[in-house]
Design a protein around this nucleic acid. Sequence first.
DNA 1: GCTTGACCTTGACGCAACGGCAGGGTTTCT
DNA 2: AGAAACCCTGCCGTTGCGTCAAGGTCAAGC
Lengths: 244, 244
Amino acid sequence: MRIGEIAALVGLTTRAIRHYHHVGLLPEPERRPNGYRAYSVRDAVLLARVRRLTELGLSLHEVRDALADDAGRELAEVLVELDADLARQEADIRERRCRFSALLAEPPGATGPLSPPLAALLAQAPRTDSPSAAKDREYLTLMDATGSDSQEVFALLGPLVADPSVVELYERLDALAEAPADDPRIAPLAADLMAAVPEELFAAIPEDGAVVTGFKEALLAEYAPAQAEVVGRLMDAFMERGRG
Amino acid sequence: MRIGEIAALVGLTTRAIRHYHHVGLLPEPERRPNGYRAYSVRDAVLLARVRRLTELGLSLHEVRDALADDAGRELAEVLVELDADLARQEADIRERRCRFSALLAEPPGATGPLSPPLAALLAQAPRTDSPSAAKDREYLTLMDATGSDSQEVFALLGPLVADPSVVELYERLDALAEAPADDPRIAPLAADLMAAVPEELFAAIPEDGAVVTGFKEALLAEYAPAQAEVVGRLMDAFMERGRG
DNA sequence: GCTTGACCTTGACGCAACGGCAGGGTTTCT
DNA sequence: AGAAACCCTGCCGTTGCGTCAAGGTCAAGC
């Protein structure tokens, strides 16, 4: 048989068979005088076995092991291992599908998926167009996505966002957008902000060391100079009090 | 933030982030004077979204689509599609695991997995050491692995293999291993073989055209000259009667 | 005899999503 | 001043083939 014939016979592509030769899964057969590969029925039997094993999900490497010598022993081992792997995959898929249906059920905003605690928190917050508040919401979603222990932070934040007077604080921060770095409103605003934060929150903020340092700089870069002063003082307080 | 910091923050590797830049999923950020990438909090938010979407199983291409413009619309579409895909995979995995347990339950021989009809057929066949019979068993497993309509062939073969007189035919074929191509025993053996084959079997053999031609030559090459004569006559009869 | 078409040959690139290494520069701590 | 821990670019490896590219071979029809 030529390669096209044996390929059609066992239900593979010629490319796949040549690939098997290339990787040493199947030895190259004799050649005809014109250079064509000449396949025997034995080859067809071997290829049929290869096809069945690959269809079962074995990698070519595993197929080689299984075909190699004591087929029964090795194959059983590989199969058990593979079955465990498939079980994991199945569980994975099921979990993902669960999250899919959760996502499809409630498309609240364009910000992407939120964890339930944060969704509850944001729903509680008063409506405001304050850019500073928008930034904070963004940072919270970031914590939500990355921080492992964001749950307790959100819980502590609950009473804070429910307080309508917080909106006024945001507006005072917004007002500093064009102000110079030595604006007299900076100090009192920083003091009022720190007063509004419940004491437990200082301890709940995670300390990642170097990561926090870089994050802080990046965060301050997003604010105007006067605003950065305020936010910077707040963060310094967090970092110092968190350690103490 | 430097790349290592943002990577730790959002839970990715630096390599992955650079990869996202490379494929255009995320634009390259500004650089510091020393050439280091300088990331903002916005980048962290974006990367966190990317991470969540990829963890849901979206490809980077799909993530780009989902992040691109109208996130809600596109994302829902992609998710539905992906969910269907996962459903397929889940079914696939379940089927494979079924076949695994079937394989592990009964390891009869080293010939690999057999379909139930063929297994029944071979169990029915009388024990014999005839090399010709061994060849036939091999060809049957080959049909089993490749032929889609092998079921009816096996059914028709049932009474044939159950007949103990068939063993004698195999032994007569074996006896021709060293015989010349003009041995006088060829013609009667071919006639007896054809007489033993039930009429319906001639029609049931699949006709694949060119594939059969190549297969026939390869099959004859496995027999000694006198045996090839016999087998060749039988196959010619199959091919002619199959058409008529 | 010539073309056409269907085969065959080797070889190399492409794919998805990065991991890992080489070879070199920067900052920082000690 | 040297070591540790960062950063940079760029290239190869992974899996299982698909898909050209650039030819050689063979049977059939004009």
